[in-house]
Write a protein that binds this DNA or RNA. Structure first.
Lengths: 355, 355
DNA sequence: TTGAAAGCGGTACCAG
DNA sequence: CTGGTACCGCTTTCAA
């Protein structure tokens, strides 16, 4: 590929002039400008944005680091991110950590080292161990050193003091879900299949679950909370075990939709009626929720808005050009989407058809 | 963030020495090496892989450019890519074109300009217009200029002469699908909902569809082929229109699963029995195929293998370090996955549970 | 309006 | 084994 030197030679002008044309400064005479433009065309030249970034620290690239793009939750988030990015001519590059902290660190480092203007991060540092803490601190210090790169995290506030974030109130969401199961659906014996216990989001949801029970005069007991691992396979096996154990229950609230799908599958195989005998509720409202039969009541997380808000905030941070005085956390609202798994006879919406 | 100069100063050695330690060349004395390592640690230094790439043209980054990560088809592909990349310590960055050729071109350019070692591309240049042709030629010329960047495309051979690719035989797949509907399921009146007509893959599938009909003594007529647009919404409306028109049919073969899901939805609403009255078949075998009721017979594309093969080939190209003499096209095999939408009483596999 | 030259963060060659 | 220095492709003073 041709470089700026080649263009300069071809056009018979200095490199500086070419540079001026590229960045369309006004101070280039018409004839020269035309010559340069022709040379650029002839050589099919395009400027090396990295070399540029090396000097000017502006690459117009944003990195989005997340656990896995196959977590459909992120599809919507990415749409929101892209929408905002497009408007500002930023390019978005996604990379996956697959829940490996090591990889996450490596990726953040790699991106921070010069080829992106900012990082939007769905961290898998849910834990509280030292390594994680140290890592998160290094994140916030990314914000303070000379060559500063803004970081915005998604889904939950990450670390303390930590970096800016766009989140939903997981505790409140869980509270409303369980409150709904109790008051609207009339259930009293609600199992919660949670996320791994040490995960921040899991803890928040358990807290919401507990609060809803207690506010409604029901008793919270630990054996009603089953530890899940995000996969629908675990929803499936936990349910089979639960039924086998004979423990009575009339509803299951899952901390995500994947697990809820597993629950539905298991109940179906066991001939247990949903929602008559057992109501099932998920969390996240991924499109699978409206595709399964019975369709799954869930908590809708405004994914698109989350992505858009994150990107918007990112652009502000970039514009400001320096670490902000205090941490900003943007909290979005969730809402319950009622479907057949908690209420018979609801007509399935065609929402999922707009893949 | 500290740079190599800071480290050198801190350790009281030359930049060259620091560089040697970083790239662990043997020729550094123990005491110096220790000093440098301490300095690196103290300053929390990490090397700027871009600046490095500027000189050495090795960034260990691979770009994957595809239409949209929410096309679940790509999830599996990405897993395959990641698996191979990990083994070789490459980092993978994904970017989405959302079917915009302009964006695709921009992204390819941006990546080619130095910050990746190779590009895996699921192009949306399905068309035959001039702009597209020119673009594809520029792709293959990426391979020929001095600073050469290997490109491997996915899904279908792109352009002519074009670049290396990992593909499946779309015509053969479609042939086998329709042949199956005729001979195994006993259908004679098969509608095909295709991709947009000008798309290469759509044309291939129509050709396969036609060949299967004709080889089995059935007549191919154009009004049995409906032009789709990838979305399940179109599968839905086309089916409703079709039924309303009164045209008789006993099977629908869709060029992708999304559209087939729309077809199922429409038939369900109209009270038409699947598969008794109408058999439905998709293409791609995305996980939604096993989640819907009735579950969807489809053509399984070895996504994981496709990604892995693409990455493997990419690594070879990088290793060779120069444009290969002739174009290489790797073709993978597909297979039919039978489910309830063509055969009653099949037990649904739990395959989808391993999200 | 134009060009020369320094420097961004590294690597690699050459001399000592 | 070590340090000096040119250079990667581009931007940005500074002079002319």
């Amino acid at each position: 590929m041709a470089n700026i030197k080649d263009v300069a030679r071809q056009a018979g002008v200095s490199i500086s002039t070419v540079s001026r044309v590229i960045n369309d400064s006004k101070s280039v005479s018409s004839p020269l400008r035309v010559k340069v433009e022709k040379a650029i065309d002839d050589l099919n030249y395009s400027t090396n944005s990295i070399a540029r970034g090396l000097k000017s620290s502006q690459t117009n690239n944003i990195a989005v680091i997340l656990t896995s793009v196959s977590r459909t939750f992120f599809s919507g988030v990415l749409e929101g991110i892209n929408k905002e990015a497009d408007q500002e001519k930023y390019s978005v590059f996604i990379s996956e950590t697959h829940d490996s902290i090591e990889r996450e660190i490596k990726l953040v480092r790699s991106c921070a080292s010069q080829w992106v203007d900012g990082i939007i991060l769905a961290s898998s540092a849910y834990g509280n161990d030292m390594k994680t803490r140290k890592y998160i601190e290094s994140l916030s210090s990314l914000e303070k050193k000379d060559s500063w790169i803004p970081v915005v995290t998604l889904e939950y506030p990450c670390g303390n003091p930590g970096v800016d974030a766009v989140v939903v109130d997981h505790k409140k969401s869980a509270f409303r879900a369980v409150d709904y199961l109790i008051r609207e659906v009339g259930r009293k014996n609600i199992i919660h299949i949670s996320l791994p216990f040490e995960h921040y989001m899991g803890q928040q949801r358990i807290a919401g679950y507990r609060e809803a029970l207690e506010k409604n005069g029901l008793i919270y007991t630990e054996d009603q909370v089953l530890e899940g691992d995000y996969t629908s396979y675990c929803g499936y096996t936990l349910t089979k075990d639960l039924v086998r154990s004979g423990q009575p229950f009339d509803a299951v609230f899952c901390a995500n939709d994947q697990m809820a799908v597993g629950v539905l599958q298991a109940l179906g195989e066991l001939g247990i009626q949903v929602p008559e005998q057992v109501a099932v509720m998920g969390n996240d409202d991924i499109f699978a929720a409206s595709i399964v039969k019975p369709s799954l009541t869930s908590i809708h997380v405004p994914r698109f808005e989350m992505g858009a808000a994150a990107m918007k905030h990112m652009l502000e941070l970039i514009r400001e050009g320096e670490p902000s005085a205090k941490r900003k956390i943007i909290t979005l609202d969730t809402e319950i989407v009622e479907r057949e798994s908690t209420k018979r006879g609801l007509k399935n919406s065609l929402q999922y058809l707009d893949w």
